[in-house]
Simulated scan of single mutants.
Amino acid sequence: MNFSFWPEKEAQQCEVTYKGTTYTGFMTLCAAITRAMEEGVPITDPKYFSQISVEELGQVLRSDNETAMPMLQERHQVLLLS
């Protein structure tokens, strides 16, 4: 899932705030996955992520602003093929 975090417009980056720090780019993915694990989502379990719906992945990778994680559909496909 570690690919393309570039927004169409620089001012519209996906952001995830974790433990008081707001992240963008690759670190957004790291923060979102860590947050999901703390919420009890078994995101590192291959059985879970090979069956995850795009909606569930969207919840895991949710942004803290109005800009969603870029290329959610493509990230979902990568998990299903893993």
Rank of each mutant, 00 (worst) to 15 (best):
M1W: 11
M1A: 12
M1K: 08
N2F: 05
S4F: 10
S4Y: 13
F5R: 12
W6C: 11
K9F: 02
K9M: 02
K9V: 01
E10H: 09
E10R: 10
E10T: 01
A11N: 13
Q12K: 06
Q13W: 06
Q13D: 07
Q13H: 11
E15A: 06
V16M: 00
Y18V: 00
T21G: 09
T21S: 13
T22P: 01
T24D: 06
T24H: 07
G25F: 04
F26A: 12
F26N: 14
F26H: 14
F26D: 13
M27P: 05
T28F: 05
T28L: 01
A31R: 05
A32M: 05
I33T: 14
R35P: 02
M37W: 09
M37R: 15
M37Q: 15
M37F: 06
P42V: 07
T44S: 15
K47N: 11
K47E: 14
F49W: 04
S50C: 12
S53Q: 14
E55Y: 00
L57Q: 03
V60D: 02
L61Y: 02
D64A: 05
D64Y: 07
N65M: 03
N65E: 06
N65P: 04
E66F: 06
E66R: 12
A68G: 14
A68Y: 09
P70D: 06
P70V: 01
M71N: 11
L72S: 06
Q73F: 02
Q73I: 03
E74N: 08
R75T: 00
V78A: 10
L80C: 07
L81P: 00
